[in-house]
Amino acid sequence: MTQQADAIIEVDGLSARYGAHTVLDGVSFRVRRGEIFVILGGSGSGKSTLLRNLVGLMRPAAGRIVLNSQDFTAMDEAERLAVRKKMGMCFQGSALLNSMTVLDNVALPLREHTRLKSSTIDIMARIKLELVGLGRFGRYYPPELSGGMRKRAGVARAMAMDPEIICYDEPSAGLDPVVAAGVDKLIRKMQQTFHLTSVVVTHELASVDLIADTVCVLHDGQVLAIGPPDEVKRSSHPYVQQFFSRQPEAEVSDNNEYIRSITQL
């Protein structure tokens, strides 16, 4: 009961599909206020799709998403907009606007949604950049930054409006282990400093130990295991075991089956 009371995100029977292809099939979980919730899953398991539903870029095919005890799925556009301003999102490819400087990227939400003076906005944006360790790079354009720096700039932009919830899509993918650990540390720091609820999508096992308060394993559009990291690691589910011990997918054993699968389209 107490868990229900302090849940900030409740996902209930969420299904998502692209055309006839069902990607998520009845996903349910709760995220407690202020925790780091890690969604773990292989490539193509629907992690990005789940986040797109969570931030409202996609409408679920079925199920409910409740944010702050308000039903996000039933809202009209104006209400969704208000909720969205309380959420930040860091994209898989950082998705900074290439046509403006890093500082302007971070300042953009403030310029669009507040009536603050331009000089005030500049200072606030610079503070956010300082926070992610990019204070000196405000005048660079995104293509001039390295991948890790772009990720951090994406975090600064997501933080611009002081959100309650922040979602990260594969924050450490494509980065070397040292930089990746730096990004994980940044996620932890953001959560601790601002008491931010963080939803982190990843397939990096190393991140789980570093940041996760709760882990949720996603496979074939369904939640296989959910709970504190130690508990999930002890789960008896074969795929979860396979994932944590980095075993490859089982080879196709039936030769006839294999031949049929490659000959018919």
Binding site: R52, L57, R84, G93, N98, M161
Partner: peptide, 11 residues
């Protein structure tokens, strides 16, 4: 590059 999605998320 998902910049349009980023704009939408930022409202």
């Amino acid at each position: 590059s998902e910049e349009l999605d980023a704009l939408e998320v930022m409202g």
